[in-house]
Amino acid sequence: MQGLEFSVVFENMNILLHGMFWTVVLCSSASLLSIVVAVVLAMTGISKLKPLRSATFFFLWVFRGTPLLLQLFLFYFGLPQIGLYLSPIITGIIGLTLHFGVYNADVLRAGILGVETGQHEASRSLGLSYFQTMRKVIIPQALRNVSPAVGNNLIALLKESSLVSIITVPELTLSAQRAISETFRPFEFYFAAGALYYVVNWGLEFILQRVEARTALTR
């Protein structure tokens, strides 16, 4: 038994903070992109074209039913095979974006279907086209209605982002591993990384609560 010695963590804090920076970059870009993906998937999912709809459903079904880790393996090994040599960070962003894009698409589709048909009719009667109606009237309302659920997905995204360490993305978890390989102190560094995740998570929950309180007022 080695015992614990937390002072090494403070000596190597910059390694962890560097990793945390990338975690934040990773999560912010993936979360924004995942909403874009979600809008696209939600639209194709309610499209009038049957093949498009079926393809979307199949894609959603597969991505909803498989672990993120497996999807990350697919991109990490598969993209180079089709000639795409991307940095681990970009691969990580792609993986997280698609994974959470699928979750958000599910939420958003329910949100779109939840907007009253009267809204659609009113907008079309003003002369807006289908896409204009979607863009200006339906999707903004749907996004607002589902914002709590999307918020929950963002919180999940932060925690799941630790998985991209496995495909060598130099974020917080991998930074902890780097520090451990130098200091041989796994408990301290993983514990510290956990604490950092906890703090970011707490901050994120706080912000989302604020946003939620705001949007609730304008509802």
């Binding site: 038994m1 925690k159 799941e160 998985l163 978890t173 796994p186 408990f187 995740y197 707490w202």
Partner: peptide
């Protein structure tokens, strides 16, 4: 604590950090 931190980190603390304690 357990909802606020990644599961992967929890596994690492138990498996890699456990022997230390």
């Amino acid at each position: 604590v357990f909802r606020g931190t990644p599961c992967l980190i929890q596994l690492f603390v138990i498996y890699f950090g456990g022997p230390q304690i």
